[in-house]
Amino acid sequence: MPHDHLSPSGHPYRPDQDHPLTYWQQMEIALRELLIEKGVTTAAEIQSQIEAMDARTPANGAAVVARAWTDPSFREALMADASEATRGMGFDIGPMRLIAVENTAEVHNMIVCTLCSCYPRNLLGLPPDWYKSRAYRSRTVREPRKVLAEFGVELPPGTTVRVHDSTADMRYIVIPARPAGTEGLDAAALAALVTRDSMIGTGLPRQP
């Protein structure tokens, strides 16, 4: 492919701005304008909602995990009621019920939404495309070890794999097992080891 779709910095141009307008983009613009004109919302409110969503990244979840690794009473509260415990850290969890599931030497947890795309978006941001794919939704509950292998995760044969199917009202976050050799690290250094996929269960934390 010639590079005529790349910007001078070598990146693709924003596909939302310079490609031909699609029917569905046309609908988004029209609907947004009508809702603003009718006073249902405002341009500023839409913009601040986008900014709030953009600000939700896996770093939020990583801070929760690192605290669970370093603060036993928080860990206990998190496992008892993850919505309440994470609200206590200042995260906007909304009305949904959040359940933390903890990986151990014996058990590995994974999350999926077989019906659609429910995801702990308040702590991890928007779900990756593969999370919403037919393949992940279909196969994870049937052959989780094969799916894990595609993510490069090979678990010992004796490990129990538990798959949690999310719903709109009840979502899960995986608390990965703290890597060995991290005894001397503080919460900030530990959080840097916690990847998005390790909180979905399709990955493991980085090694220090």
Binding site: L115, A135, R139, T140, V141, R142
Partner: peptide
């Protein structure tokens, strides 16, 4: 309601 169906590899495009 596709949980448990057969399907291809998980796509890695993002």
């Amino acid at each position: 309601d596709m949980g448990g169906d057969a399907a291809g590899p998980v796509p890695d495009a993002q």
